[in-house]
Computed example of a mutant assay.
Amino acid sequence: MSTQFEATVIIDRPIEAVFTYLADGRNDPDFSPRVLKIDKSPDGVTKLGTVFHSTVKDAGMKSERDFAITELTTPTRIRWREDSQNSITVREGGYDLAPTPEGGTRVRLFNVLDGHGIGKLLLPLAGGAARKDAPDFGERIKAAAERAA
């Protein structure tokens, strides 16, 4: 059982700058208030196999989450999967980037959520909340990426 949410925004920054910003998952706390802490392994430039280890707070509960980069096509595509054992995980997530004629970047974000154990019962609620927040989440990404310039 899975559910998906997505958002699309136009960021007023060149595609290369947006890609570099989004590929470094350590920037996630800039636009995702649920991320309390995040580290990267190994250090250095994000590449295929890089893992971001995070502590997040969802519905008042803290959990540890590991996201592995599964695809990186500079400057247009980033994909990840969650390698954690939580009740709701991200089977696949990603960013699709495209330049705009005005010199900005169109970014589509998506996550496919899976429920495990009790998470199968919670998935419709979590998915609904994620879909409801998706437009605002996209706007937070836009604001953070534009501030990072």
Rank of each mutant, 00 (worst) to 15 (best):
D39M: 02
D39T: 12
K40Q: 11
K40I: 00
K40G: 00
K40Y: 01
S41H: 07
P42N: 02
P42I: 04
D43N: 06
D43M: 01
D43L: 01
D43C: 00
D43W: 00
G44W: 11
G44Y: 11
G44E: 07
G44C: 00
V45S: 13
V45Q: 14
V45H: 14
T46Y: 14
T46D: 08
T46C: 13
K47G: 13
K47C: 02
K47Y: 03
K47F: 00
L48M: 07
L48D: 14
G49A: 02
G49D: 15
G49E: 09
G49N: 12
G49K: 08
T50E: 07
T50H: 06
T50S: 13
V51W: 01
V51P: 11
V51C: 12
F52K: 01
H53S: 15
H53G: 05
S54V: 04
T55N: 10
T55I: 12
T55K: 15
T55A: 02
T55F: 03
V56F: 01
K57D: 13
K57T: 12
K57G: 08
K57E: 15
D58H: 10
D58S: 14
D58K: 09
D58F: 13
A59I: 05
A59M: 04
A59W: 14
G60N: 10
G60D: 12
M61I: 08
M61D: 11
M61A: 10
M61Y: 13
K62E: 11
K62S: 13
K62L: 08
K62V: 06
S63G: 09
S63T: 09
S63D: 08
S63E: 10
R65T: 02
D66P: 00
D66K: 10
F67L: 13
F67D: 14
F67Y: 12
F67S: 10
A68Y: 11
A68N: 11
I69G: 02
I69L: 07
I69C: 07
I69E: 08
T70N: 06
T70H: 10
T70W: 09
E71C: 08
E71I: 05
E71T: 13
E71N: 14
L72G: 05
L72V: 09
L72R: 15
T73E: 12
T73R: 08
T73S: 10
T73N: 10
T74F: 02
P75W: 04
T76C: 05
T76Y: 13
R77L: 09
R77E: 09
R77V: 04
R77H: 11
R77C: 03
I78R: 13
I78C: 03
I78S: 08
R79G: 03
R79N: 06
W80Q: 04
W80T: 07
W80S: 04
W80F: 05
R81F: 00
R81V: 00
E82C: 03
E82F: 02
E82K: 05
E82V: 01
D83I: 01
Q85R: 07
Q85F: 08
N86F: 07
N86K: 06
S87Q: 11
S87K: 11
S87F: 12
S87N: 11
S87D: 10
I88V: 15
I88P: 08
I88Y: 15
I88R: 14
T89K: 09
T89F: 06
T89R: 12
T89C: 02
T89V: 04
V90N: 01
V90A: 02
V90I: 04
V90H: 03
R91G: 04
R91M: 06
E92G: 07
E92Y: 15
E92H: 15
E92V: 02
